[in-house]
Design a protein around this nucleic acid. Structure first.
Length: 271
DNA sequence: ATCGCCTCCTGCGCGC
DNA sequence: TGCGCGCAGGAGGCGA
């Protein structure tokens, strides 16, 4: 279940292994991911040089002069750099083999991930063109969020998890950020004051920045298989702690389902 | 335009 | 110990 910190760390981790390298071969073992992996990349990508690797939201871009490979890890996907001859696992669906014998390997048991191809600007891709700002950028600020939220009846948790509002706030960090901001997850987005949006923005940025920082230390080596998601290292205040005492007031943590997502909060500390 | 629900898929945890 | 069941979870798509 990669959240933005895992995707950012993955992107940073694989970049030095891919940048300025030439693609040798593409293996598609299981094309049925969220969308079919386009077969034409098997012909088009070999011999192409990888110019850069970057990301937008949770989408990772591998850029060549003829187009961009867009990867999404869904909720169970992971990328590793391995030797091309390394035996593959049941869920190793996709290999991008480099001419130097190394290989970018996509592992995704639940297959909610995606491998897409575009010859246009990837930011103009249908899936990406309507996305909200990056949470750690200055474009994500209280004034804009406040304006967008007016007359919105959805819960604040669903609001901040909506990629058209802001990208990269996944289920775990949504609960964590709302706890830090003292906001009840069920509160209607449109009923929250600018001052409280200021607190929320600060909380979201803090939670994600800390997770990225810690993810960087745990996931630094992408040539091995022992990388663990950053949040295993991070102290979670509420997520998954139903019934356990709030770390601030000791009241048992509550749990509910919002937009079909597990939600954790403290009724004492969050109003 | 907005909202709520459904869907994809597998591994895991639970109950018996 | 083994089996079967139900559920989690990112995010697009659709119907209301």
């Amino acid at each position: 279940m990669p959240e933005l910190p895992e995707v950012e760390t993955t992107c940073k981790g694989i970049t030095p292994h891919l940048k300025n390298k030439t693609i040798g071969k593409i293996f598609i073992r299981q094309p049925k991911l969220r969308w079919p992996i386009p077969a034409k990349i098997k012909k088009q990508l070999p011999q192409q040089k990888i110019l850069s690797v970057n990301r937008r939201a949770k989408y990772i871009f591998i850029n060549t002069s003829i187009g961009t490979l867009i990867l999404h890890l869904g909720m169970s996907g992971s990328l590793r750099i391995v030797k091309a001859k390394e035996p593959f696992d049941k869920h190793d669906h996709f290999d991008l083999v480099l001419k130097n014998g190394m290989c970018l390997r996509l592992h995704d048991p639940r297959r909610f991930g995606a491998v897409l191809w575009t010859t246009e600007d990837p930011l103009q891709h249908k899936l990406l063109s309507n996305l909200g700002p990056e949470p750690l950028s200055d474009d994500f600020n209280a004034e804009d969020l406040y304006q967008k939220s007016r007359k919105r009846k959805v819960s604040i948790k669903q609001f901040i998890m909506n990629g058209n509002i802001v990208v990269g706030v996944g289920n775990i960090y949504a609960s964590e950020a709302l706890f830090l901001a003292g906001l009840h997850p069920r509160k209607a987005a449109g009923s929250i004051s600018l001052a409280r949006y200021n607190k929320l923005i600060t909380a979201i940025k803090k939670v994600l920045a800390l997770a990225i920082e810690q993810g960087g230390t745990t996931l630094k080596d992408f040539t091995r298989s022992d990388g663990k998601p950053g949040y295993f290292q991070q102290q979670l205040n509420v997520y998954g702690r139903k019934g356990e005492p709030c770390l601030i007031c000791k009241k048992p943590i509550s749990h509910c389902v919002l937009g079909q997502r597990a939600t954790y909060y403290c009724t004492q500390c969050q109003k």
